[in-house]
Design a protein around this nucleic acid. Structure first.
Length: 378
RNA sequence: GUGAAUGUAGUUUAAUGGAAAAAUGUGCGGUUGUGGUCCGCAAGACGAGGGUUCGAUUCCCUCCUUUCACCCCA
């Protein structure tokens, strides 16, 4: 019997699992602080719906597909945004929701790439452009709380189109040109130019490097300037990067990408798009990648109540502590084993419940870090 | 998906064409109420399947895992 996890899937336990749980707590709290409400959607959807209109989208070719007994053509969700098409119905706008949950992609795996990962997604349906800054601020907040320095890059899809238009790049080549531009940071400029030359767009790279003086003549650039301005009001900076493209084909306005030192993979991505004529904006990030760099405090105050042949009293005491919201485990056995147990699971307080304590109705708490004992107050 | 590398106890690392070693972790114990020290005992591995061979963990083949690159992406 094979017990190992499937390629690209894995278990989390111990410290790692604690860290992930703690991070999710921070994420939920922050999203709610920004007025987003939670939503839960199915993992399985009709394949047709998952694919949507993005038939040419490479990412969509990486979906896991399956069939049920009724021979329905189904698929595992590979992101959350498309499900908004259903959630947004009959909602007063702007509808602000977040969702945290597993998504699945049948694609190559790597150290920071999995086939199942927890995606944390926030969107505003019925968004004004200035709400892009709100969404970015929420994400920035989360990153700050886990001691990360995010580098937030922004660009605009239409701006790229305008530039390709003005350079008279053939329509049929544009998609490929964008894909090449996206490689800007990965391959040498020489190589990039050669690739672009084949597509009749070798001048693009030099143009993108020109900066403000060149971009300001395009209408879409104003949207970037405006976004940068709003972000400054929130107290953080975003950086204009004309070479970020983003894959998901529904983006049609500003697009975002968050990077950080210490990881080559993108931490978060998002942008503005239009569903049923409604302008929306959203961003999402993967918990696993964030977790690689995040620093969170997983130490919590917790108790180990040790029953030394005083089970009834020990249980009573545990329940009292739990009523005060303490995290309590019970241990039946020898004190030396109990202390070892407490160390193994980083339980920082132990209470002995033995004949002596029960008789005197006095319990002492031992702090596992300092070794000091003090009277237990409930 | 393609190409390259990889695969030994839960984890980290040895050795070998001829009975697989250690550290750490785990379980039990050290005569029964105080820990991260120490001592003893125990359980625990050659990714899977084929082939070559008297004999394969070691050589060969296939598959799988992991890692890297391409493609794309959180």
């Amino acid at each position: 019997m094979k017990t190992e996890p499937v390629k690209g899937f894995r278990d989390y336990s111990g410290e790692e699992a604690k860290k992930r749980a703690e991070m999710q707590k921070i994420i939920v709290e922050t999203f709610e602080k920004y007025g987003f409400e939670p939503a839960e959607t199915p993992v399985i959807e009709y394949e047709e719906f998952v694919r949507g209109d993005n038939k040419n989208d490479e990412a969509v070719s990486d979906i896991f597909s399956l069939k049920d007994k009724g021979k329905r053509e189904l698929a595992l969700r590979y992101e959350f945004t498309f499900q908004l098409k259903r959630l947004m119905q009959n909602k007063k706008l702007p509808y602000k929701r977040y969702e945290i949950g597993p998504v699945f992609r049948d694609e190559p795996v790597g150290s920071a790439r999995f086939r199942q990962f927890i995606q944390c997604d926030v969107d505003v349906v019925g968004a004004e452009p200035r709400q892009e800054a709100e969404v970015l601020s929420a994400i920035n907040d989360i990153f700050q709380q886990v001691k990360l320095n995010p580098i937030i890059l922004v660009n605009n899809r239409q701006l790229l189109n305008e530039i390709l238009e003005s350079e008279k790049v053939k329509t049929e080549n544009r998609e490929q040109v964008l894909r090449e531009i996206d490689k800007y940071d990965k391959i040498s400029e020489k190589e990039l130019k050669e690739n672009l030359k084949k597509l009749g767009a070798e001048k693009i790279i030099d143009l993108l490097k020109k900066g403000e003086s060149y971009f300001s003549k395009f209408e879409s650039y104003k949207k970037i300037i405006s976004l940068m301005d709003y972000c400054r009001s929130y107290g953080f900076e975003v950086k204009f990067s004309p070479t970020i493209v983003r894959g998901l084909s529904y983006y049609d306005g500003n697009v975002f990408e968050i990077k950080s030192k210490g990881i080559k993979e993108t931490l978060a991505g998002g942008g503005s798009y239009t569903f049923d004529g409604t302008p929306c904006t959203g961003i999402s990030f993967g918990l696993e990648r964030l977790s690689i760099l995040a620093e969170v405090n997983t130490k919590k105050e917790s108790y180990l109540v040790i029953s030394i042949n005083q089970d009834r009293e020990a249980i009573k005491l545990s329940q009292k502590l739990r009523k005060n919201n303490a995290a309590v485990s019970l241990f039946y056995g020898k004190p030396s084993k109990a202390l070892e147990y407490a160390n193994a699971y980083s339980i920082n307080k132990v209470v002995f419940v033995g004949e002596k304590e029960v008789k005197n109705k006095k319990f002492t708490v031992k702090d596992m870090d300092s070794g000091k004992e003090s009277a237990l107050k409930i």
